[in-house]
Amino acid sequence: MTDEHSQVSDEFAESITRTEELAYELRIHEVMTENVHCLPPDIKLEEALDIFQKERFSGAPVIANGDLVGLISIEDLIRALRAGNLDVNVSEYMTTKLVTVREYDPVVEALKTFARTKFGRLPVLDKQGKLVGIITKGDISNGLLTALQRDYHAEELIRYRASHLFEDIVSHRTSLILRYEIRKGDFIHGGNASSNIKRALLRLGATPQIARRCGIAVYEAEMNLIIHTDHGGTLRVEVEPHKITMEAYDDGPGIEDVEQAMKPGYSTATNEIREMGFGAGMGLVNIKRCVDEMRLISSRDRGTNLYMIMYLEDKDNNLNTVN
């Protein structure tokens, strides 16, 4: 990479698209054409033309004693045709000033070389300098498209595997437990755990509605841990085929009046927290509306335990009946 690229500013880096990223991630050998048809230097152009026509080639490397000695393209053949000179050897018309790329270089190197040289195809060499393939702009487009598609399928595959988890593992009671430590005052990451929980539930085959409702409940609980606790707390989610149990617990200070805390609009949050869009006294109310069952246990000496349960009794919602 050149200096100009090692000094990419953060602003610039943010504007880089996935395709551009892939141009750096993908290696030339991943997108090049292997097993290229090579020609010897001592066959006649006439014969080369027949091969090009039959195989629909637009260019081919020329190999002598296992070494790359040139590249013959359809343009070279046209030059020879114009001159009425097809009865000479390939070596007479081939390009010998070769620009090559290495198999383990990133695809972006090939793109740069294409831009610099105007060549339509570049021979790809291994470490020993032996020809291992040919790369064209078409190969790069195809490679990038395939990689983008692979990105997309990767998420689908994860979802597929996860949603079969409960079918594949046999026990009297299978459950998956997710734990997240939430730090007090960590507004920057506030909601991160909940986003991950929602994503996990979707991957496990929960319906979007169930995942959304659990997400909202657990997000309110997460923000409560950030805002109201002495030292933060823990989010614990137990996923079973028929039920999702979410738990938020901390070690203090505890809620003085649980009944009052459950009233819509009641809040002990500071103005600062309200300015961040929270502390409207709706958190616990929201949670209660989103889940099937909610229990809040709190005392001044033991802190607060909030249980939120979502039942997946409905056959369509059951995690192990997901197609």
């Binding site: 507004f187 909202i216 929270f278």
Partner: peptide, 25 residues
């Protein structure tokens, strides 16, 4: 979180990472 229907656009004067997380949830 209490009132928005799925797939909506959210207009807000609030401007912090929580807005995006809320959107996600």
């Amino acid at each position: 979180l209490a009132s928005i229907k799925p797939e909506a656009a959210l207009l807000t004067g609030l401007c912090n990472p929580q807005v995006v997380r809320t959107a996600l949830i």
